[in-house]
Amino acid sequence: MTKFNKKTFFLMIMIMSTVMVMSSNKWLSVWMGMEINMMMTIPFMFQNKSKELSEKIMTYFLTQAMGSIILLTSIMMKTYNLNFMIVMFTTTVSMMIKMGIPPFHMWMPEMLNKMDWITLLIMITLQKINPLIVSSQLTEQNNLLNMMMITAATVGSISGINQLSLSKIMAFSSINHMSWMMMCMAMKNNLWIKYFIVYALITATLCLTFNKNMSFYMNQLNHNMMNMNKMMMLTMMLNLGGIPPLPGFLLKWMTMESMMVSNYFFMMTIMIFSSMVTLLFYMKLMYTNMMLSSTMTKFKLMNHNKQLYLIMLINLITPSILLI
C-alpha cells in the first residue's frame, strides 16, 4: 500500500469516527469514536524518525489520553447518578483539553510548530469536530462555558501578536475562533455549524497556499510568491479577520446580533476587541508581503495556480449559500 493510499485510508476512518460521534446516542460510543479519531491522527503526524517529531506525537497522545480518561470518568459518574454539576464540569474540562482551549492550550501551539501544513489543517479542523459536537450538548446550566469563551478569545488573540511562526499564528487563530463557535452554542442555535464550515474553508485555503509556497515563517512569505497568490492570501486573511463584506464578517455579524438579543453585551464587547487584536497580527503578517514586490519574473507570473483560485472562489461563494 502506497503512502498516499495509507493516508487516504486513515482519513476515511477519521471521517467515519466523526460520523459515529455525530449519530451516537450513548456516551460510551461517543468516547469510542473520539479514541478512534485520535489513533487515526497519529499516522498523519508521523513523517520521519526524529526525536523532535516523536516528542510531539507523544505530547499529543498523552494530552488526548488525559482528556479521554476524564471523559470516561465523567461517564462512569453519570452512570452512578452522581451530582449533575460535577459530571458537567468534568465533561467540559475533558473537551477543553481535547480542543486546546485555555488554560489547557499550552500543548497545542508547540506541537503544531514546524508541523507540515496538511497535518496542521487536519488538527485545527477535523480534530475539532468531535469535541465541538459534545460541547454543543453541554450548554444547559453550564457556567464553565462563559469562562471558556472569555479565555479562548483573550488568550487566542493576545498570544498571537509576537509570533513569527505561521503554524503558531494559525494555532492561536484557531483558539480565538473556537470562542465564537462556543458563543453560538451558548445561544442554543446551530449557527456554530455554519461558522465552523466557513472557518474550515478559509483555513484550508491558507494552509494549502502556505504548503504550496513552503512557507513556515513570516519572512518566507516574500520569496517566490506570485502577485495573484499574495492577493488571494490577503483576501483570506481579511476574511478570517471578519472584514466586511466578506463571508467571515457576515457570520460574526449574525453571531453579534444573536448576542444582543440574548443580552450578552459584556461578552460581545470582549469578543469584538479580541477579534480586532487578531486582525492586527493578520495584517502584520500581510503588510511586508504586500509592500514588497515579487522576486519572480514577469513571464513566471503568468503561471497561475488554478486549483488554489478555484478553492478561494468556493470559499467566497459557499458561505453565501449557507447563510440563505
Score class of each variant (00 low, 15 high):
residue 4 F to W: 09
residue 11 L to T: 00
residue 12 M to E: 00
residue 16 M to K: 05
residue 16 M to R: 03
residue 21 V to G: 04
residue 29 S to M: 06
residue 30 V to Y: 01
residue 35 E to W: 00
residue 41 T to M: 15
residue 43 P to C: 06
residue 43 P to S: 06
residue 47 Q to T: 12
residue 49 K to I: 08
residue 50 S to Q: 07
residue 50 S to M: 05
residue 51 K to D: 11
residue 51 K to C: 09
residue 53 L to E: 14
residue 53 L to A: 05
residue 55 E to P: 03
residue 59 T to K: 15
residue 60 Y to C: 06
residue 62 L to F: 11
residue 74 S to F: 05
residue 79 T to R: 07
residue 81 N to L: 11
residue 81 N to H: 14
residue 82 L to N: 09
residue 82 L to R: 05
residue 100 G to T: 08
residue 100 G to Q: 10
residue 102 P to R: 10
residue 118 I to N: 11
residue 128 K to C: 11
residue 135 S to T: 12
residue 141 Q to M: 13
residue 142 N to R: 07
residue 142 N to S: 07
residue 146 N to W: 14
residue 146 N to K: 13
residue 147 M to C: 13
residue 147 M to F: 14
residue 155 V to R: 06
residue 155 V to Y: 12
residue 157 S to F: 02
residue 173 S to H: 08
residue 176 N to F: 07
residue 181 M to C: 03
residue 182 M to L: 15
residue 185 M to P: 10
residue 185 M to K: 10
residue 193 I to Q: 05
residue 196 F to L: 11
residue 197 I to C: 03
residue 197 I to T: 01
residue 200 A to M: 06
residue 208 L to H: 03
residue 209 T to H: 10
residue 210 F to L: 15
residue 220 Q to P: 01
residue 220 Q to G: 01
residue 222 N to T: 14
residue 228 M to F: 12
residue 228 M to K: 08
residue 236 M to N: 14
residue 236 M to V: 07
residue 237 M to T: 06
residue 247 P to N: 04
residue 248 G to W: 10
residue 251 L to I: 11
residue 258 S to I: 09
residue 258 S to G: 11
residue 268 M to V: 06
residue 269 T to S: 14
residue 280 L to T: 04
residue 285 L to I: 10
residue 297 T to L: 08
residue 298 K to R: 11
residue 313 L to Q: 04
residue 314 I to A: 04
residue 315 N to V: 09
residue 317 I to N: 05
residue 324 I to W: 08
